[in-house]
Nucleic acid binder design. Structure first.
Length: 871
RNA sequence: GCCCGGGUGGCGGAAUAGGUAGACGCGCAGGACUUAAAAUCCUGUUGUCAGCAAUGGCAGUACGGGUUCGAUUCCCGUCCCGGGCACCA
């Protein structure tokens, strides 16, 4: 018989498990809980290829293992069902995205079922279902109704904020907000409702922002930076279609994620995530400590009026005395009023062209351009006037949009100074060494000594930074400041297939939250972009226009982005049927957080950051007891095509798991994917290789057969058989704990080969082996278990424990090295006396030959490891 | 440019509190069973040199140094590959 009857038994058990609800899980305070989660898939039209289930197999093995170890395991699955591709497909085929999405989900489910996963499907979620997205909308509403109190380091209700404003204005409020502002209670109380609303918008965690976006007229929508490419002649164009893209300010809903920047950064230290993902998030958040320093504007050459002071941000206040000029971003607020009349035209022309250059273009081009504004700022310490320039190498969105240039110690400032022949003033030198002038490049090292710097002279950079900040603060010239690269998260899309906002604008343009949820997505005739920058929903008059208590209102017609639903889905699995709240308190307190999360690393700065953000927010509101969603994260690698290229239709190298299951069975597919190599590595698929695993499973099956009939005996196992069993239990247990599944599979092969050679058919040895392999190959294990006479599922059995006593060795074959080179092997009792061993070794013929009569210098004996004779 | 990973047979990969490098599988070669094939099983398989052979010598974990009785593992330098960030002051 070639292969064991996998197709028959796999189908049988899959049906049986589903019918008996084997993987259904409920809260059980008697058992420790374990929550294993996979990143839920986006149900594309192409279905799964063998690369997709890699992570699912790994997490399924852990889930099954943990159950056998006595844990109450939550292992759910669902679908990230809103999003652009579905909408695009709907437009092309004139079908409703709900319909195509449902069809795709069906395909996914069929494929997933083939592989024998132990998901609790009763907990399935789909982000596009009203019963799910009503809670996405509800969480959005919470963001809308809260602000971030920096003093308390938590989110608080805006109702409290309004009360405070009416009593004290905004004094005493330390909030995360878009624009700094100051007002008294008297001022607040006389404001119009619209103005109050605008001010609250400045504080809300979900707020309306006017941001510069990439607008593509032809496609009628906003594009992400990575969807815009630079055309040599046409300039910025859309990646798809090559249509022109312009930068345009548009109204966008945003989430104030920057309020949580510091906590998002600090929280990383508590997580068992890979260093690389943590590092990516750290870089993305981009915390830098420094100071904001004011430079008063000196020149009064402008006829329009002037800005009193320019505030710059620097991480190197120690280089203050090396700042011969100041540079502003082209978007700098009030640039036109700052510059001198003679320079105004040149400045504005430059600023305009810079603004229209795409981000990509500006970044790619590191040649320095710029214009002198005609204005001068007073250096805060030397009090000398220094020129103010404008250049697009200064980013408007970071810090204050203005810098003090220190060309001698900053690469970019150096390039700029060289390009415009501006002075380069060195103020930091290496210890015990002088700088060679003129400088060939900026000396940006942070281990130098200050000179030419007045009160900083002789100080090391580190202490000079502290001293400079103190001085700046004491003299009232600025303050210590921490800056983040992290930007607010744009939360609106001009698209149909997403969650509608629970927002209505009244006739004064004041946004009001709708509390009657869900706000359902209306059925529409056309999903096509409108071309006006509005979502297709804007065309559905009967939906958009609503009656409010005091007049007509208009619904928000943007929808939420793809990441909205995925930012909290792990919480819904905990209590998927709850119609009172997103998840009930007792269930949340039981399951707490995801213990193991398996998924791709491509979500490092998107989903994984947003989920942490939403979790911290809901934690602040008291709904969660932990403020990190995913305790341990493992990123599975990619499975490449046989040709070493990425698996895709384009290369024709896609392997479909359905085909593999048909030909070899799900158990073989599961074990082979694990056998390919370490889970986290990328590795190529190899069709020949799968034969080896298939052969192994057949061999494993035959281990239980005598003359092709199932046979287990009750004979007492030999010492050697017990040793094989217990060493395997130990190895498999350790490997699963370390998620080293490839070596676990090889350990099964070794055990099977060894027991096969012994013709061992003993129940006491083989039955524990069935439990060990059950997480990897659940079908074959269940069949053999049942054949062995068990009525209950093997997946409800108890994980075997190894006994060291069976692993104790009495002898060891010591490799004997002479001067570090292995020359022979001699066996000794492990309890043998060191002196005796030494004597025996030295009289050994081979040892003597290699010692060539030279005297022994040293005798090294590492018990159970090696013997080395040094001559 | 900067920051993370990583370079081990023909291939996927084992082995690092420093201790017999190449487990396991694929591929390849040879053999057994068979009328034959499939399936299964057995043997060999890092390179090189010596030998009819059993066997043995030497070299060998990207490259060059270092520490050590002993280095794939630790340290320094170089090269290459993968990933991330990229004018973030």
């Amino acid at each position: 018989m070639a292969q064991y009857p996998f197709s028959e038994i796999e189908k049988k058990w899959q049906t049986h498990w589903a019918e008996t609800g084997l993987y259904k899980v409920l809260e059980n305070p008697q058992k420790p809980k374990y929550y294993v989660l996979d990143m839920f898939p986006y149900p594309s039209g192409t279905g799964l290829h063998v690369g997709h289930p890699l992570g699912y197999i790994a997490s399924d093995i852990v889930s099954r293992y943990k159950r056998l170890k006595g844990f109450n395991v939550l292992h759910p699955m669902g679908y990230d069902a809103f999003g652009l591709p579905a909408e695009q497909y709907a437009i092309q085929t004139s079908q409703h995205p709900a319909k195509t999405t449902a069809a795709n989900i069906e395909t996914f489910r069929r494929q997933l079922d083939l592989m024998g996963f132990s998901f609790d499907w009763s907990r399935e979620v789909r982000t596009c279902e009203p019963e799910y997205y009503r809670w996405t909308q509800w969480i959005f509403g919470q963001f809308f109704n809260h602000w971030y109190d920096k003093a308390a380091e938590k989110a608080r209700p805006t109702s409290e904020l309004e009360r405070h404003f009416s009593l004290h204005g905004n004094s005493g409020i330390n909030a995360a907000c878009s624009e700094p502002m100051q007002f008294t209670a008297a001022e607040w109380n006389v404001l119009s409702p619209k103005m109050k609303s605008d001010i609250l918008n400045n504080y809300r965690l979900a707020f309306i922002d006017f941001t510069t976006v990439n607008w593509c007229q032809e496609l009628g929508c906003v594009l992400a930076n990575e969807e815009v490419v630079n055309h040599p002649e046409k300039g910025p164009v859309s990646e798809r279609g090559g249509y022109p893209v312009v930068r345009k300010k548009m109204k966008q809903w945003s989430l104030r994620i920057t309020a949580y920047a510091d906590r998002l950064l600090k929280g990383l230290d508590t997580l068992e995530w890979s260093d690389s993902i943590k590092e990516i998030q750290r870089n993305w958040i981009g915390r830098s400590e420094g100071a904001e320093i004011q430079f008063t504007v000196e020149s009064l050459q402008s006829t329009v009026g002037e800005i009193a002071a320019i505030t710059v941000f620097t991480t190197r206040p120690d280089t203050l005395f090396g700042a011969p000029f100041v540079v502003l971003a082209p978007e700098y607020e009030g640039l036109g009023t700052l510059c001198s009349d003679e320079q105004r035209e040149a400045v504005m022309t430059y600023a305009e062209s810079a603004k229209n250059r795409s981000e990509i273009d500006r970044m790619a081009d590191t040649r320095k351009t710029g214009v002198f504004t005609g204005a001068y700022a007073k250096h805060p310490f030397t009090e000398k006037p220094i020129p103010v320039w404008v250049s697009d190498y200064v980013l408007a969105g970071y810090g204050t949009g203005a810098i003090m240039a220190v060309p001698a110690h900053d690469e970019r400032d150096f390039e700029f100074a060289k390009a415009f022949k501006l002075p380069i003033v060195p103020v930091i030198k290496p210890e015990n060494k002088n700088l060679l002038e003129p400088l060939k490049e900026a000396f940006s090292a942070k281990d130098g000594i200050c000179f030419n710097s007045d009160f900083l002279d002789g100080l090391a950079v580190k202490s000079a930074i502290q001293k400079a900040i103190e001085k700046v603060e004491n003299k009232g010239l600025g303050k210590r400041k921490v800056n983040y690269k992290l930007r607010e998260a744009g939360f609106g899309r001009q698209r149909y297939w997403g969650e509608p906002f629970p927002i209505v604008f009244d006739s004064n343009q004041i946004p009001h939250l709708i509390n009657d949820l869900p706000v359902e997505l209306p059925k529409v005739e056309s999903y096509k972009p409108t071309g006006t920058g509005e979502s297709p929903l804007a065309g559905v008059k009967e939906w958009v226009e609503v009656d409010l208590e005091d007049g007509p209102g208009l619904r928000e017609t943007d929808t939420m982005p793809g990441w909205a639903g995925s930012s909290w889905y792990f919480l819904r699995y905990i209590d998927p049927g709850n119609s009172e709240t997103f998840a009930g308190q007792t269930t949340i307190n039981y399951w707490k957080q995801v213990d193991l999360y398996v998924g791709g690393s491509e979500h490092a700065t998107g989903h994984l950051l947003y989920s942490r953000f939403w979790t911290k927010f809901l934690f602040d509101l008291g709904y969660l007891s932990v403020d990190e969603p995913f305790k341990k994260l493992v990123n599975q690698g990619m499975i490449m095509g046989e040709d070493g290229q990425k698996m895709s239709k384009r290369w024709g190298n896609v392997v479909n798991p359905d085909d593999v299951c048909t030909q070899y069975g799900a158990d073989t597919l599961r074990m082979y994917e694990m056998f390919l190599g370490p889970l986290t590595d990328s590795k190529p698929w190899n069709t020949n290789g799968i034969e080896g695993v298939s052969r192994f499973l057949s061999k494993f099956w035959r281990l239980f057969e005598q003359e092709e009939l199932f046979s287990l005996t009750d004979e007492t196992p030999s010492k050697y058989e017990l040793k094989i069993l217990h060493k395997t239990i130990k190895k498999i247990t350790g490997d699963i704990e370390q998620m080293s599944f490839n070596t676990a599979v090889s350990a099964f092969m070794v055990a099977t080969n060894e027991l096969g050679a012994l013709q061992c058919k003993k129940r006491a040895v083989l039955e524990p082996l069935i439990i060990l392999i059950a997480p990897f190959a659940p079908h074959i294990a269940e069949e053999l278990w049942q054949k062995g006479g068990h009525k209950e599922s093997v997946h409800l059995a108890t994980w075997p424990v190894w006994d060291e006593q069976h692993l104790v060795e009495t002898h060891f074959e010591y490799p004997i090295s002479i001067n570090g080179k292995t020359r022979t092997v001699i066996a000794f009792d492990l309890n043998a006396d060191a002196k005796e061993i030494e004597a025996t070794v030295l009289t050994d013929a081979t040892v003597q030959r290699w010692m060539e009569g030279k005297p022994m210098k040293k005798f090294i004996l590492v018990k159970g490891r090696i013997i080395n004779v040094v001559v």
